[in-house]
Each structure stands twice: as structure tokens, then as C-alpha cells.
Amino acid sequence: MLKMFGRSLKLRQVSAGGCNACEADINVLGTIGWDLGRFGIQYVASPRHADGLLVTGPVSKNMELALKKTYDAVSEPKIVIAIGACAISGGPFANHEQVRSGVDAVLPVDLYIPGCPPHPLTILDGLLRLLNRLEKQT
């Protein structure tokens, strides 16, 4: 499946209780400093155009339904990437009754990218690793 996405991966981002730091460092990969497009990866506006979701935040219960609906709107096959400490485990909000303490409580997750927030390089490294596109060290 990843081979299929290998040359063109379109991702839809959903913030589900994220504090806007993960979102900012996801966004920055699209700017001229990083130019994510050269790797064939692009953020798209509609889940219908996406091959997967980038989810940030501990998944607040108030966003749970919207997140599931967005996931359902992505056509198969699809992947889910959890970005940041909150999305992985709930982070500093783990076990609050208002959150689901991580994306995998709600959706199947294919890749976890750690950090609070992860540095843009960490996110890029995660994406390229998932696609098996990291260049071999010589």
C-alpha cells in the first residue's frame, strides 16, 4: 500500500484538541524553507482528495465525531499518522475525562511521530521513513 502512495501522498490534517504548535510545525513543512511538495507529499483541503490523515491533539471528546467522519470520508486504502505527544498518548492531558488520550483510542494508527511539538525535521523524517524514502547513508 505504501508503495502505491510512494510517489504521491496527499494528507488531510485534523486538529482534535491540538494546541496549534503541532499544527504550526506541520504547516511549516509546506513553506519554501522545506518545500514538502518535492517529496510528492501535499496537504489537501478535502478528505476526499486525501490518502490519509495527520491527526494532532489528544482527541478531545468534542472532536471525536468530526474526526471519525473525516476518516470515513477518506477513501480506502488510507493511513493515519498521529503527530505529537498528545496524539500519541494524550500527552499532558492523558486520562482527562474530556479527551480520549490519543488517536489510537479512536482510529487505527500507522505512524507515530513524537515531540511536543515534533520539530519539522522529525515530522519529515517520519513521513519519509514511512514511505521508505530515506536515502541510504553511504
Binding site: 486538529s15 482534535a16 484538541g17 491540538g18 491533539g57 489528544p58 478531545s60 468534542n62 472532536m63 468530526a66 492531558f93 482527562h96 475525562e97 474530556q98 479527551v99
Partner: peptide, 10 residues
Amino acid sequence: GYQHRGIEEA
């Protein structure tokens, strides 16, 4: 309200 994480309560 979508981002409510219960900070004041915590």
C-alpha cells in the same frame, strides 16, 4: 468548544 481538554479542572 471542540478543543476542550479540561485544563481549569485539572
